[in-house]
Design a protein around this nucleic acid. Structure first.
Length: 624
DNA sequence: GTAACTGTTTATGAAG
DNA sequence: CTTCATAAACAGTTAC
């Protein structure tokens, strides 16, 4: 059975001998040889505060420090700092802080570490998921410690790092040829990778082909030629992909709608074990707001077997960016004044005044596949189709309903992901009316609506009556642009029925005010957008935290914010991020309190970080 | 004119 | 039911 896509990648545990290293031997003379041979609780070093220390079983430079609940953490940290410095760079200068444990947990933890034979302990530690109470406890506790230390030692001497003490992977690694393995990404994802991999973020179809072939040899060597058809299909199907033409109109480029673009690049997901053609994509550093991302250590990515990359971490829900948000009626109050008369204006009359690059590309003439007779029949149909005329704009009308399609067809037609046009809500053309001067949409802050406006530049009439004002009118009768016309290159029984809203605005002038998507620069129109931007991908919880005046506030906020990490992000994070089992204070680096902690909780459910059974006051006396 | 390429759309089935 | 992959029909464009 294949692992859950959300399951974090399990890295191989670094196998270290239990023998004390030479360097460590000279670290703390006070610990004595006794501890080296038997790190039992009784031999653990005791600080004046009652802190007990013991060598980490697998990390030679790390000690586990058990801090009593009542201990003064500040003094403990100070002591550890001093101790770490004493040990020097070769000694055990990192400490995993375990704080506030109950005696039972403590005993379990220490007992787990100390009472079992080495081989058994190793076996325990190497099993996955964690079956050691100490390890589980460590996970939970380190969660606490992370926040606690951030709180207390934001300007302290410590560099907080994450290690992977018990990382391992016992899964049998099948020897598969990565070159012949199908990548675990959807076509849509791969297209995004490709386009985002380019500086200017637009690609010709052929470039997309080549990119995919270069990065996924499967498509070059194994896949049937039909995969290119699928690429084209995806490009056409998904609204996030927008076709633009070069200034001379001879070259078509595919781009990604900015507000729909999460700037995904391949190396955000994984680094191939073998990438014979293209080295690691360097694009990530070129992506503007993506620059804060930190890639995981290369070794982490290298350790990801291809089979474990079989996940779908990057499949944005279509409705997350394709469907304009239906806000309540009142939302339209942001709009400038509009009049029913404007609404009554045929959409195409405004479409030419939308000077975005996208719309420019959309001004290509639509092939006049619909003959006059066809148009007549269409108009006749529309005028006689009661269900369409009577339907409010906001009500979805089953396309082709009046054409009596086969039941199967009707079923499919109701699927919202089919056909980009279907994704456009009826009122999406309204912004054109409200904002004939659409320079707003070129400002970079592009709302869904504006882009829809661009993408779905309504030009139905242009087929029959080319817009003489269009600067691109010389590109007459090119391939119909998606969503630009109800009719398609594929003969359609009742083309106009596919987009009933195109005939409803005049009649539904008032109803159109339902549309919330007229806000000129509506961040609120894409409220989720930023949560899906790559900015969030690698951000640590701390980055998102405001300043806190108290531990309680911090922890409260931290717990609050944790669930905001979507599964998707977790999935990506699982690929890129360290798997944190413990927090280590690197006492040898006292220059900065640079926080390098990325917290993820492998083997714990997203919604269950193991905190349910933890009393915060148990760890933080200050909270009491 | 034809082939190849490109783009759009529909249909269908698998998988979850 | 949704998402995705796949196949295919069809049309426009371009190069030969």
């Amino acid at each position: 059975m294949r692992e859950s896509p959300r399951r974090p990648i399990i890295l191989k545990r670094r196998k270290l001998p239990f023998q004390k290293s030479e360097s460590d031997a000279g670290c703390d003379e006070a610990d004595g040889p006794l501890r080296k041979t038997s790190p039992t609780p009784s031999t653990a070093r005791c600080f004046p505060d009652g802190i007990r220390m013991m060598d980490h079983p697998t990390m030679p430079d790390t000690q586990v420090v058990v801090i009593p609940k009542a201990a003064d953490l500040q003094s403990v940290i100070s002591a550890l700092t001093a101790k770490g410095k004493e040990c020097g760079p070769q000694g055990r200068n990192k400490f995993i802080l375990l704080s506030g444990s109950t005696s039972l947990e403590e005993e379990k933890a220490l007992g787990c570490l100390s009472t079992k034979p080495r081989d058994e302990l190793e076996k325990d530690l190497s099993l996955f998921p964690f079956n050691c109470s100490f390890t589980n406890w460590l996970i939970k506790t380190s969660f606490f410690v992370c926040f606690f230390c951030v709180l207390l030692f934001e300007i302290s001497f410590f560099k907080i790092v994450c290690l992977l003490p018990f990382k391992q992977s016992k899964a049998p690694e099948k020897e598969k040829d990565p070159l012949s393995e199908r990548p675990p990404y959807s076509y849509m994802a791969m297209i995004q990778f490709a386009i985002n991999g380019k500086k200017n973020r637009h690609m010709t179809l052929k470039e997309i082909y080549n990119w995919i072939e270069d990065h996924f040899p499967y498509f070059r060597n194994v896949a049937k030629p039909g995969w290119k058809n699928s690429i084209r299909h995806n490009l056409s199907l998904h609204d996030m992909f927008v076709r633009e033409t070069s200034p001379d109109g001879k070259i078509s480029y595919w781009t990604i709608r900015p507000e729909a673009n999460r700037c995904l690049t391949l190396d955000q997901v994984y680094k191939p074990l073998v990438d014979p053609v293209t080295p690691t994509c360097p694009q990530i550093t070129q992506i503007g707001f993506n620059q804060q991302q930190k890639r995981g250590p290369p070794e982490l990515k290298k350790a990801i077997p291809a089979t474990e990359r079989k996940m779908k971490p990057l499949l944005p829900r279509t409705d997350s960016y394709l469907v304009p948000i239906q806000l309540p009626l009142g939302q339209s109050l942001f709009l400038p004044s509009s009049s029913p008369a404007t609404l009554a204006t045929p959409p195409h009359a405004q479409s030419s005044s939308t000077p975005s690059s996208s719309s420019a590309s959309k001004r290509v003439r639509i092939a006049p596949k619909v003959s006059q007779s066809d148009v007549s029949s269409v108009m006749l149909c529309a005028s006689t189709s009661q269900d369409i005329k009577e339907e409010p704009v906001s009500v979805s009308v089953t396309p082709k309903a009046s054409a009596a399609p086969p039941p199967k067809t009707r079923h499919r037609e109701n699927s919202s992901y089919r056909r980009k046009q279907r994704l456009v809500l009826p009122a999406t053309e309204e912004p054109v009316l409200r904002y004939p001067d659409s320079t707003l949409f070129d400002s970079g802050v592009v709302s869904d609506v504006s882009t829809f406006q661009d993408t779905h530049d309504p030009e139905p009439q242009s087929t029959c009556k080319p817009d003489s004002k269009s600067p691109n009118r010389e590109y007459a009768f090119k391939t119909p642009i998606k969503s630009s016309h109800p009719s398609s290159s594929t003969p359609s029984k009742l083309p106009i029925v596919l987009e009933p809203w195109r005939i409803t605005p005049v009649r539904k002038g008032g109803v159109l005010d339902f549309s919330p998507i007229r806000t000129p620069s509506g961040p609120q129109l894409t409220p989720q957008r930023h949560e899906h931007t790559p900015l969030s991908f690698n951000s640590t919880p701390f980055k998102e935290l405001p300043l806190f005046s108290s531990p309680r506030e911090l922890l409260t906020c931290s717990r609050r914010s944790t669930p905001t990490c979507s599964r998707e992000l977790l999935q990506v994070g699982a690929t890129d991020h360290s798997l944190t089992e413990g927090l280590v204070l690197d006492t040898m680096n006292d220059s900065l309190s640079k926080i390098l902690v990325d917290i993820s909780f492998p083997n714990l459910e997203d919604d269950d970080l193991g905190m349910a059974n933890i009393s915060w006051s148990q760890f933080i006396p200050e909270l009491k």
